[in-house]
Write a protein that binds this DNA or RNA. Structure first.
Length: 481
RNA sequence: GGCUCCAUGGUCAAGCGGUCAAGACAUCGCCCUUUCACGGCGGUAACUCGGGUUCGAUUCCCGAUGGAGUCACCA
């Protein structure tokens, strides 16, 4: 059996869209799963859409995502060149060969005639007008430098069929397919043609791409047949949606890999999540490494219907990845976010990391979670009221005063020492420990949720600052009771 | 509009003729706790609608409805 070869063929138009990345990922997983090769081809024939530097974005995205191509512009595997614009010389000859074989023909119709074919809805289907031109007539016009295109010759009746690996049997009536342009009047191939030629020349035997090609694939197959080439297997993938009717797209923003990285998502988590969007593993485990994905990837698990992108779930998954990070790795990844917080440079990042790791889902939450360290002032004292804990503002105030007095004597301003003091106070006053610690935590931070308990926060702030804040809060409470 | 597909909770989804219809996220409640988190336990929540086929349909067939894709000298 021939070695499996899949490809990812992006256009260098800017950032990597999440949907594209998923297609890429599946092509990669399928190749690796089957000990095959995954090739990267750059489709840059459309000069108008070309964006400078976009090829580098593709490389860096693949690298960050952990997807390694076996062949590509930077890795010759003997099937190059891998950049379509460098291949343009070979398409015309293949088109001519196809004309010889009856799969295509020259067309000299001008725009006016083409427009005249349009129906009430502005939809036109080419009428094969030039198919009837004799060989001599065609030659005469070419010699006369009359502009021409080369069109595919599609049978006018019957149906074309194939079996898609995810959608099953697909059958399209031939009369619904147009004799599309293969070679444009400027001599350049259209995507439809270049794709077929390239895939064949690069020995791609598993074509994995978006569903938008599902119903045009019979056209491609007709070309393979006319050339006498072996048809590849096809795997079409349903789109990722923003909601039930809108596709996730650049137009709606935040759909690029880079955007998610900037929001503090880990590349492994993004890859893991999108792998699960449209494919499900046999088992119930959802947190899967790239190796596990390769191992478990299976066409059976690919779903046919579009799936809606759920950032909440990706967020959760990202949190799972963060919980498994070492303090060192977390500090490394989180440093930019520490730096942009108000606490930048004033605290030991490793200490912050220990507190933050189990409490952060995406890295960009960090500044908000630690800003209280440097930002403290008037806050809403109703926070002190806690029904279940039986805490009122009065009780909070009383306990805070006791704590203030007691803690002032403590020399060892550490979490453990302060915790012991707090517990002792609770016992002495007959309070529940929570009645001591909840008000303390609030009084020290002024915010409802903190990255740790009261004494941890106290240790972080240091004795002087802690006492200052306690005084402030006691005063605040007295004024608002 | 023609053509090609698709259809299980709010979301991702398992299921592939007989199940009290998995699991995860989200949500809600309880527990743990030192208050914040983490964690543990539990709850709410789904087979789009009609016809068939069958002893029996979420599952197979047809239709309706809804949704997606496609109908370029763009990829």
């Amino acid at each position: 059996m021939a070695k499996v070869r899949t490809r990812f063929a992006p256009s260098p138009t800017g950032f990597m869209h999440i949907g594209n990345l998923r297609t890429c990922l599946y092509a990669y997983l399928f190749a690796k799963k089957n000990d095959g090769a995954f090739v990267l081809r750059i489709e840059d024939t459309d000069r108008e859409r070309y964006v400078e530097g976009a090829v580098d974005v593709i490389y860096s995205t693949l690298a960050k995502a952990g997807i390694t191509h076996d062949e590509g512009p930077d890795k010759d595997g003997g099937y190059g060149p891998y950049i379509q614009s460098q291949r343009k010389s070979l398409y015309l000859d293949y088109a001519k060969e196809l004309v010889e074989k009856g799969g295509a023909y020259y067309c000299f119709c001008d725009k006016e005639r083409l427009d005249s074919l349009k129906d009430g809805n502005g939809v036109a289907k080419y009428d094969k007008h030039c198919l009837s031109l004799s060989k001599e007539e065609v030659q005469r016009r070419i010699d006369a430098k009359q502009p021409y295109v080369i069109r595919q010759n599609i049978p006018s009746d019957g149906a074309s069929e194939y079996d898609d690996m995810v959608f099953g049997h697909i059958s399209v009536p031939n009369e619904d397919m147009e004799d599309g342009v293969l070679i444009k009047s400027d001599g350049m191939p259209t995507y439809n043609f270049a794709n077929v030629v390239d895939d064949h020349l690069m020995a791609i035997n598993y074509v994995i791409r978006g569903v938008e090609y599902l119903s045009s694939t019979p056209k491609y197959n007709l070309m393979y047949d006319a050339f006498g080439w072996e048809r590849p297997h096809y795997m079409h993938l349903s789109p990722i949606m923003k909601d039930a009717q809108r596709k996730l797209s650049k137009r709606y923003g935040d759909a690029n890999f880079e955007d998610f990285l900037a929001k503090g998502y880990l590349p492994e988590a993004i890859v893991n999540y999108i792998a699960l969007l449209g494919w499900s593993p046999k088992g119930n485990e959802e947190k899967l490494s790239m190796n596990q994905l390769v191992e478990q990837f299976d066409v059976d698990g690919i779903s046919k219907s579009p799936s809606i992108f759920d950032e909440a779930k990706m967020r959760w998954l990202n949190g799972e990845y963060i919980k498994q990070m070492s303090v060192e790795d977390f500090v490394k990844a989180a440093t930019p976010y520490f730096e942009e917080s108000k606490a930048a440079g004033k605290y030991d990042y490793s200490e912050l990391a220990k507190l933050l790791i189990p409490r952060v889902e995406i890295l960009s939450e960090i500044p908000d979670k630690i800003n209280f360290l440097e930002e403290f002032g008037e806050y809403d004292v109703t926070m002190f009221e806690h029904k279940k804990m039986k805490i009122t503002k009065e009780i909070a105030l009383a306990n805070l005063k006791t704590v203030r007095q007691d803690f002032a004597e403590e020399e060892d301003w550490s979490d453990t020492a302060l915790k012991a003091r707090g517990m002792a106070l609770a016992e002495k006053t007959g309070c529940k420990s929570g009645q001591i610690f909840l008000p303390l935590r609030l009084a020290l931070t002024g915010v409802a949720t903190t990255p740790g308990g009261a004494t941890e926060m106290a240790q972080l702030l240091g004795k002087q600052e802690s006492l200052r804040r306690l005084d402030f809060s006691i005063d605040l409470l007295e004024r608002n009771i």
